[in-house]
Design a binder for these strands. Structure first.
Length: 723
DNA sequence: CTAGGGTTAG
């Protein structure tokens, strides 16, 4: 018999074959010389999968009779088949096959003993299924057989625990490993990166290099997502180049994501543009990268470019697009509906993640009605879904609806700590103090969830808004964990509402230490001082801000009128109708003053005369946008504006009166929530029958440049030209 | 015969 037809050597040829053609040749040889040998079927299936032909592997495996089980004669052939299932992503089958040998149905193969080769594939399958219970059970099986010291088994365990989010369990295995190779380190780094412990992952990578272990492609793919700042990104990038991994598509995709995450979007885009071959992950990563950097228009434009090239998006791609649309300042409800339609037409709305993202989209675009409709039609809901809908009600000031939904939820599933953030923030938006306390206390007493900083921040906000500043401060002092900037930020915000400079200073001192680059807090403190007539102190804060190089965020408001988006700055005079706007504004201010509106000059600049203050208040971007909207929209239609920062207190009050005297519903979205004004009561967004044409935008920094057919493929010749 | 991979809603 020629060496290549001997069982042993033919098997090893199969396992090392590098091309489909050579594998098929070996497949034929196996069939001729060893028909119906199970080992060959299994080895061939594994190899087909690993070479990227899972369908061939699946059809081969489907020829096997699974019940009654294939007639194994040796553990060896059993292991091969187990691995074939695992390699082919047929993890359920792998687990079920294993359970016939050990576990749930022992004794099916009494003559077979599992060995060290049995465990790695089946443990890996538990990881892919995120089935930690099965993983732990099989871990114990391996322990019982005295196999846990085995390198490959330990590596598989680290991987499995990492996939299941059990970081501590992974560490426990990793720490006691008798010997480690590059796979062990890589699995542990991947575990940390996947579970939000990026710094630790990066540190472990450095430690690995110090230990003289040479990283490979898989290591890079795991450590690149760990980089969080420009320095780490540059380090890894030069490492990639030095080791020649820069031509690998997966590595390139990871790098695009990394540079975007590390605030080097321009670099990410350069990298993306230079990629000779792009796959869906490349497009998704770049779109998502723009989203992470609040460059939503760029994200939407890139999506359009992608479609123009005929690339068909998947659910991950549209997720980035949905998010960009949800968060963009220059996007509207019509736009959301267009994207929703796109998702449906392309059958991408079938999965839980997409549906939840759509709920979030409608909440953020102002329509609780649409959001709730999708929510109600969902067949399954995750904790994220519940939390999105609950905080959606909260954002719109509908605290009671939020709590009602939560009560429904808790009869069905066990809430997690993030759902409680949604519940508590809904209480704070609606001023439901007693309920807030009750839910806050129930976290520990009923659910055993330790409150995090965000929960404390909600409670401080709730107490602070109600004017219970002292109580809020004592609450912070009694916290069993260190308060973070969100907690002190809530207190500072409350100090602004209730004009308390003493507590504000205490809060600000902590804030400037914990989060020195957040410009809003400096502005807040300085405003508190100046509205109390403490000009000197206010100037000191401004000086501090300058010294630290913190840039103030300019406030602006956008409004959509007839498919164009207009952006207003304070005292904006750049609009074609600007002079009319100011005339109308003055008339309107007089009108609402007769109704009882009193300008609150607390919110004006403070080193000027009362009358000047009043005039500067009237020039706030919110008011300009509303007047512009009133001038350019049909009577009775809803005015919607969107401000990048929190809406100013005087504008909030003025809007109430404007809504009343003009009998117009006004919806204000700011950086935190929605404010609904209708007659002077808060209302829900009504379900409009009005259809507006789709508007998409140019990323022009100015305003009013919004071709309405932007999204439609083929209409923008300039962009086609680029390719 | 063992092994590792990128994008994913609050």
């Amino acid at each position: 018999m020629a060496p290549s037809t001997n069982v042993r050597s033919l098997l090893s040829l199969i396992q090392t074959s590098a091309s489909l053609l050579s594998l098929q040749t070996l497949h034929a040889a196996a069939l001729r010389h060893h028909p119906s040998n199970l080992s060959f079927t299994a080895a061939l299936a594994s190899r087909y999968s690993l070479l990227g032909f899972p369908h061939l592997s699946h059809s081969l495996l489907s020829t096997l009779p699974f019940t009654p089980l294939p007639p194994f004669t040796t553990t060896f052939s059993f292991n091969l088949l187990l691995r074939a299932y695992s390699d082919s992503n047929l993890h359920d089958q792998a687990l079920s096959l294993y359970s016939h040998l050990l576990g749930s149905s022992p004794g099916t193969y009494p003559q077979l003993e599992p060995d060290r080769f049995t465990f790695p594939p089946v443990i890996k399958s538990c990881g892919y299924l995120c089935d930690v219970e099965a993983g732990v059970r099989i871990h114990k099986d391996a322990e019982r057989l005295g196999l846990v010291g085995d390198l490959a088994i330990s590596n598989a365990l680290v991987f499995m625990y990492g996939k299941c989010g059990e970081v501590d369990a992974a560490w426990k295995v990793f720490d006691v490993m008798f010997e480690r190779n590059v796979v062990s380190w890589t699995a542990m780094i991947g575990c940390l990166g996947r579970n939000g412990k990026r710094e630790e992952g990066f540190q472990l990578f450095k430690k690995m290099v110090e230990h003289g272990v040479r990283p490979n492609r898989a290591t890079l793919l795991n450590v690149i997502p760990c980089a969080v700042n420009g320095e780490e990104a540059d380090d890894l990038y030069s490492f990639v180049i030095r080791n020649g991994f820069q031509f690998d598509l997966a590595v390139q995709n990871a790098l695009v994501g990394m540079f975007a995450r590390c605030r080097k979007v321009g670099f990410a885009r350069q990298m993306f543009d230079r990629m000779p071959v792009k796959d869906l992950v490349s497009w998704s990563s770049m779109i998502e990268g723009y989203g992470q950097n609040a460059m939503y228009l760029e994200a939407l434009e890139l999506f359009r470019d992608m479609r123009m090239l005929g690339v068909q998006p998947d659910s991950v791609t549209v997720l980035g697009v949905i998010r960009a649309c949800a968060n963009s300042m220059l996007s509207c409800l019509a736009h959301a509906r267009f994207i929703h339609g796109f998702v449906i037409r392309n059958f991408l709305d079938k999965n839980l993640v997409s549906q939840t993202a759509l709920v979030d989209l409608y909440v953020k675009r102002g329509s609780l009605t649409y959001a709730r409709r999708i929510f109600d039609r969902m067949e399954e809901r995750s904790l994220v879904t519940w939390s999105t809908m609950i905080s959606g009600y909260g954002m719109h000031g509908r605290g009671t609806d939020a709590l009602y939904l939560f009560e429904t939820m808790r009869t069905l599933v066990r809430p997690d700590h993030i759902v409680f953030v949604s519940v508590l923030s809904a209480c704070s938006h609606a001023g439901l103090i007693d309920e807030g306390w009750r839910y806050f206390n129930s976290m520990t007493s009923e659910y055993g969830i330790m409150p995090h900083s965000e929960h404390y921040a909600c409670m401080v906000d709730l107490l602070g808004r109600a004017g219970k500043l002292q109580e809020a401060k004592e609450f912070i002092e009694k916290m069993p964990i260190n308060p973070d900037s969100s907690v002190w930020g809530s207190l500072l915000g409350a100090c602004r509402i209730h004009q308390n400079a003493k507590l504000a200073e205490i809060a600000a001192k902590e804030l400037f230490r914990l989060d020195p680059t957040n410009s809003g807090r400096y502005v807040l403190l300085s405003n508190i001082f100046s509205s109390l007539g403490k000009g000197k102190e206010a100037d000191k804060v401004k000086g501090l801000m300058r010294r630290k190089g913190v840039k103030r965020n300019d406030g602006f408001t956008v409004i959509e009128v007839k498919n164009r988006v207009y952006k207003f700055l304070v005292g904006d005079k750049t609009k074609p109708q600007s002079s009319q706007i100011y005339v109308e504004l003055e008339k309107l201010m007089d009108r609402i003053k007769r109704e009882g509106y009193v300008p609150d000059t607390n919110f004006a600049l403070h080193d000027v005369e009362e009358e000047t203050k009043e005039r500067s208040l009237a020039m706030h971007s919110e008011k300009l946008a509303i007047v512009f909207g009133l001038m350019n929209s049909a009577p009775g239609s809803v005015i919607r504006i969107h401000k990048n920062l929190r809406v100013c207190g005087d504008c909030h009050n003025a809007t109430k009166y404007i809504s009343k005297v003009t009998k117009r519903e006004i919806v204000v979205r700011d950086s935190h929530r929605f404010h609904h004004f209708k007659d002077d009561q808060q209302t829900e967004y009504p379900q409009g029958k009005k259809t507006c044409k789709l508007a998409l935008y140019s990323s022009s920094q100015t305003d009013q440049v919004i071709p309405s057919n932007h999204m439609q493929v083929g209409l923008n010749k300039k962009l086609i030209h680029r390719y």
